[in-house]
Design a protein around this nucleic acid. Structure first.
Lengths: 103, 103
DNA sequence: CAATTATGTTAGTTGACACTTACGTAAGTC
DNA sequence: GACTTACGTAAGTGTCAACTAACATAATTG
């Protein structure tokens, strides 16, 4: 979650979602220095959000759809947990109404 | 995004999703001190994620579904942006295949 | 109005974080 | 093997974030 909270890291993720990119090309998209991006990539990698593949002197990065999907599911469960409860409350309310009528 | 990245704040949000709660009762759910929760509540309020209502000496908090939904939409756009592009690329690939066949 | 209850605010501490500069390193190139 | 390329890593810095302890404030109660 915290890896994704950072706007720059979200941008990086978007860049390497559909295609592999070497670290240098990723860094060139941003105004900050290359090491800064390198550190962001490490955070993303430690979070399991990107994979790294070495090709000669280059390191190619790519988003890992499975992990991203996992975060997505986690958040959707978070939103839906509440919807679930609201639904149950609505049903309980419904039952109360019916009982009142029965009396 | 950063307001939600904090696990404790997510827990707070869950607590006050379906029902209003006074600050003290929220704080009693956690091991940290009450001021700490008060500060988290301020962060959430500044992010527009919770509303505050005063009732005597108490302050009742509740999650704001509209803002939460906004964050949700923002993230879903984030995931889907890429799906969108992948879809477009798949279609472009499809067109290329068809053109090749035509020749 | 003094005492109590429920809560926010301030000051200070500790640690994390995003960044830069300088350096290290592994793989190709002459 | 020296040089270059494409990187990561280490050290240092300023800022922010989460927390605690102590204090301030507003409403309520006797």
């Amino acid at each position: 979650m915290k890896a994704i909270a950072e706007p720059r890291r979200r941008e990086i993720l978007r860049l390497i979602w559909a295609r592999e990119l070497p670290a240098g090309r990723i860094a060139s998209h941003f105004a900050v220095t290359r090491p800064a991006i390198s550190q962001h990539l490490r955070v993303l990698k430690e979070a399991g959000l990107v994979s790294e593949r070495r090709d000669g002197t280059r390191r190619l990065y790519r988003a890992r759809p499975d992990t991203v999907a996992e975060v997505r599911r986690f958040l959707e469960a978070f939103w839906d947990e509440d919807l679930q409860r609201l639904k149950q409350e609505a049903e309980a309310e419904e039952r109360r109404k019916r009982n009142r009528r029965r009396r």
